[in-house]
Structure formats: C-alpha cells, structure tokens
Design a protein around this nucleic acid. Sequence first.
DNA 1: CCAAATCGAAACCATCATGGTTACGATTTG
DNA 2: CAAATCGTAACCATGATGGTTTCGATTTGG
Lengths: 140, 140
Amino acid sequence: MTNTRYTVAIHVLTLLAYAGPEALTSEFIAGSVNTNPVVIRRILAGLREAGLVRSQGGPGGGWQLLRAPEAVSLLDVLRAVDTEASFPLHATPPNLACPVGRSIQAILTGHFRTAQAAMERELARVSLRDLLEDVKAQPA
Amino acid sequence: MTNTRYTVAIHVLTLLAYAGPEALTSEFIAGSVNTNPVVIRRILAGLREAGLVRSQGGPGGGWQLLRAPEAVSLLDVLRAVDTEASFPLHATPPNLACPVGRSIQAILTGHFRTAQAAMERELARVSLRDLLEDVKAQPA
DNA sequence: CCAAATCGAAACCATCATGGTTACGATTTG
DNA sequence: CAAATCGTAACCATGATGGTTTCGATTTGG
C-alpha cells in the first residue's frame, strides 16, 4: 500500500456523491484531483467492476455513482481498488532448516490478519455520506 | 508499506530471542532470513537506534536483544522500522478550488488515523514471547 | 601484538511499481 | 455526420527496494 489509488478512489466517489445524479466526465474529475483523465478512468474502471459506478460514452456521458452514498463504506472502496493493504512477507522465502525461518511466515500471517481486520472494521464504519457531510460542513 | 523490512525485523528479533544471551552474527542471521548480511545489518541498525538490540564487532561479536521478549511488542517493532504503515494521500495536491478537493485530505487523514490506531492496538497485544511460543509449539 | 572476525557504511546496480502521458479506436449522442 | 467521451494499449520518467561489493574501523583471542 504505497500507492495513492485508494485515496484518489475515495476522492472521486465523494465527488460523484456530491454531484448527485449528474454524470461527471473523467476530464472534469481529473481537474479536481489534479491529475490526468486517463489515471481517473483507470481507477474508475476498477470501481465499475466492483459495481460502485457506471460510465457512459459520447456527449453528455461520464460517470455516475450507482449506490446511495450511505451504502458505500471506505472498506467497500478498499476492496474495490484492492491494493495490498496488509504487510508483505519476505522477499525470498526464509530458510526452512531454521526453526524460526520455517514457521515465522505462518505465525505472522495470522497476527497480520488480525491487525488488518481491526483496521477494516474501522473503515467499514465510515460511508461516503459521512465524508459528504464533512465536506459540506467545511467553512467558506 | 510495500517493503518487507517489518517482516524481516520481526523475524530477526524472534531469532535473537530464540538464541537467548548468545550473540548472533549478521551472517548467521542472513542464513535464516535467506538474504545478504548487509541487508540484515541495515535493518538491525534501525532496531539498535530504537534501543531494541545492541551490536558488537570483532570475533565472537554479533547482535543481542536488549529487552525481555515479553517486553517487545509488534507495535514496538513497527515503530522502530517506521516504514509508512498508513495510507498515502494524493501524488499531487488536489484542486483547492473544488469543495471536495479542498477538504478531502484533512477529512481522510482523520479517518485513516482512526483505522491505523485500531490496527496498532492489535499489534501492541502481541510480543516476541508470543511468537517464540508459537515457534516452539510447532511440530517436528 | 598480530591476525582474524565482525560490524559500519558508502556506493552501485537491477528490478519493479507507480503515476503520468500520448495515441487511437469504439461508442454514443444530438 | 460531427463532436464528445470512454477504453485501452503503449510508453516513459521517477523513485523505492533489495541485493551486492568493497573497504575501513574495531575488537577479540591466541
């Protein structure tokens, strides 16, 4: 998880929620995120596979949110972009002739999963609607 | 957090705990991790700064754990290697002229911190002693 | 007191992920 | 039919990562 796709995905979805039923073009969205439209389309393509948004070509086309903002959690978005959110193990497998090397991966996998689950539980508690409220509550 | 240093650090510390008072050389440790001794020394240098281990040059030298295994948690190790464990924000700052772009970073920072804290709470519950027990409990 | 062992650290490298960019075809709308 | 928009492949620059070599400094033990 060194990449910014998760953050961009949340940003874009919040923007779509903010826009309501109106379709937004990747060019417009790229203007808010401050990047290239192709980058936006790449990320939105993943969100579309997950059933969160739909796209339409041609004039007047663009992207729309498919669910109510309160029905999309930050965990849903994480799953949709599914960028490795957990801890990677060794670059090359450890030495199996060593008692520690032999067992450490299985042991760590369990503990990492537990920690990851706790994080996901928190992400599941926040929805796009919460973000929208935060955005609208902002001064001037 | 795309790097494997956290996993390697835990592996190495578990090995030192396993070895007890005996000093282990970076070459020996590299044999268990299955990598280059310099990589091990690099990671151990960070753990030494954090006060977790000490090193000694010369024949008979090597690395030793400075604390009791039950006094070192996985969170302590994470802090010691301090590789970015959280979610990165945008690659380039969002457009401040957009209501969403203007506020999204501050909003997300808060939610990410909460999620991260939940994860760290779990990591704090596991110590090197727990790992050692898991290693020793392993069959044949 | 010397030889060997070990760490410390810099320098360099190959590989890969990432984000950005260009380009162009396909589709859809009006 | 023309313009807008998406879809996607291809390519690129950049930076992080893990590995490797090298050599000096320190320490130990004989």
